[in-house]
Design a protein around this nucleic acid. Structure first.
Length: 541
DNA sequence: GCCGTTTTCGGCCCGACTGTTTTCAGTCG
């Protein structure tokens, strides 16, 4: 948690420096440190205690000092001094697409805009039109951006909310000495949640000295109180969606859930097996005839044998191939697919033909050491604006498999974007479509695309669709993933890891696959490596 | 501000797209 605080303050400090017109390289040094901390695999607290922060690449004397200050005081001298000069509320403006340092600074200097509210007002008064470099389109885009941001600000990413909820759970367990359950949307594993809900047994509201109304991170908290005798019933009531509860009510003679001490007992009295929380949406679990099959076939953690889309230090990942292989083995997997960026992703150090051949040779060397594990030769090839791929067909055919992803030109019309992706998946070398909508949860809307057409094309060309497990993406959305499965498309859970810690994100993708009701056999990660390679080869690999 | 060095200074990633222009600055990945 303290690492998150440090990252947040360093990021803000970098932007304040930038707004103050400081040297680009000084700013970048802070941003580099942020990136290094994000990708850090070592135990941060340990580095702090053992006075080894300088071992982190990008952390020198100055930033070490800043980190120490943040840990002691929650901020840095640099930030505090800059805040005298630049209103920190300007930092909120960075969350609007199309606004960067230059334009934010310009708005501040000319119109004295210091926060989102003032910016919104200025747009409504058409005042931006008078500024150089701004036109009607920019003004409208900014207004739309503010509106979207307001919507985002009432939601929280799953891991952020879960972390805060678990802290509160521990706290409440200490106070009450009783049972506490994280319930609500969070227990159902929704990708974004509006609040934290906790169920507490053996205590009533009046007995709690300080009932927190929100978490330290500002997430609203709702507490539910129950007794041991009603625990199961109330756990179900506070976890399920309204539709799930309605479904259960329809099975009870009087429409009321039976009183039970455990969830299993409550479900049993309704004539149902235990339904995992992530399925309690009132969507897939409501067919009593299909439920047993759904539950029996549902993909689990134990079914996963590896993952496909990950980055090494050949592009923007931090780890060597050897390190990744060792890590994969330690996770009990039998393979990890390397899918570094292709050459046009210059910002990410994308691989050209020579790099890729060098990488393939090194993968062979690493693989020679193991009989129980394999690195797979993949590539995350950019889908260029016209739908062609950023790599020659000859080179693609040398790989085990190919993931195609969009990383540029997001603002096309739905028709153009759909054509672009359809063309890409029709390339005979493509085995997988990466993060199909480009959404960044609470930050960037999905690009306009006809997903039904994409799903049909993937079916036609035998292309699997990725469920990107990065908690900021979780793309393909689980609702669509179910649809893709129904239409006969295979799916793959991919952490898109850039560091060893990144492989932990696989769990979020698995959660999405389970919410989508995917049986293990349609999830490529559960396949045996021989069957996988054979499948990829059938497509001409 | 960091880093590496035939070491205490000089270099540090860039190309495409967009909305605004009339030749380009700013943002983004």
């Amino acid at each position: 948690m303290r690492r998150q605080l440090v990252i947040g303050v360093l990021k803000d400090t970098a932007r304040m420096l930038e707004l103050a017109g400081e040297s680009f390289y000084r700013v970048r040094a802070y941003n580099n440190a942020v990136m290094a901390l994000l990708k850090l695999d070592a135990d941060f607290e340990e580095l702090v205690q053992q006075d080894r922060l300088r071992e982190i690449p990008g952390v020198g004397a100055g930033i070490e000092q800043s980190i120490r200050e943040i840990l002691d005081t929650g901020t840095t001298t640099v930030y505090v001094e800059l805040a005298q000069e630049i209103p920190p509320t300007l930092l909120d403006l960075y969350n609007i697409p199309g606004l960067g340092t230059k334009r934010i600074r310009y708005l501040y200097d000319t119109l004295q805009i210091t926060n989102l509210g003032e910016l919104e007002y200025a747009c409504q008064e058409n005042r931006l039109l008078t500024l150089k470099g701004f036109g009607p389109k920019s003004q409208a885009d900014i207004l739309a951006g503010i509106k979207t941001l307001r919507r985002y600000q009432q939601s929280y990413l799953y891991p952020d909310a879960l972390g805060a909820a678990l802290q509160l759970k521990t706290l409440l367990e200490e106070i009450t000495g009783g049972k506490v359950l994280v319930s609500g949307e969070l227990r159902r594993g929704l990708e974004v949640v509006g609040k934290i809900e906790l169920l507490v047994a053996g205590i009533s509201q009046g007995d709690l000295p300080d009932v927190p109304e929100q978490s330290a991170a500002g997430i609203p908290v709702e507490l539910h109180f129950t007794s041991k005798e009603r625990w199961g019933t109330d756990a179900i009531l506070t976890t399920g969606s309204a539709a799930h509860i309605d479904f259960l009510g329809s099975l009870a003679p009087d429409g009321e859930l039976p009183i039970a001490a455990s969830e299993e007992e409550c479900y049993a009295q309704l004539g149902l097996e235990f339904i995992p929380p992530e399925l309690r949406e009132g969507i897939l679990e409501t067919s009593r005839t299909e439920l047993p099959q759904l539950l029996a076939g549902l993909v689990t953690d134990k079914d996963l044998k590896g993952v496909f889309h990950n980055h090494s230090n050949y592009s923007d990942g931090t780890n060597t191939l050897a390190e990744i292989a060792e890590h994969g083995r330690s996770l009990g997997w039998s393979f990890i697919g390397i899918g570094d960026h292709s050459q046009s992703a210059i910002y990410a150090g994308g691989l050209n033909a020579d790099d890729l051949r060098r990488q393939m040779a090194e993968i062979d060397e690493v693989n020679a050491k193991y009989s129980d594990f394999k690195l797979l030769k993949g590539l995350e090839v950019d889908i260029l604006s016209d739908g062609s791929l950023d790599c020659s067909d000859d080179l693609l055919s040398e790989l085990d498999y190919v993931i195609a992803s969009v990383h540029s030109a997001f603002k096309m019309s739905e028709r153009e974007m759909t054509q672009r992706v359809l063309k890409a998946v029709s390339n005979p070398h493509v085995n997988m479509l990466g993060h199909p909508t480009g959404r960044l949860l609470l930050a960037r809307e999905p690009y306009a695309i006809d997903l039904d057409a994409v799903i049909d094309a993937c079916r036609e060309h035998d292309v699997a669709i990725e469920i990107n497990a990065n908690p900021h993406r979780l793309d393909l959305d689980w609702r669509w993933a179910h649809r893709a499965y129904e239409r006969g498309v295979l799916l793959a859970i991919n952490p898109d890891a850039h560091s060893l810690a990144g492989y932990n994100d696989t769990r979020y993708g698995l959660n999405m696959a389970r919410k989508a009701g995917l049986p293990r056999e349609v999830v490529l990660n559960t396949w045996d490596i021989t069957a996988l390679l054979e499948k990829f080869r059938q497509k001409g690999k």
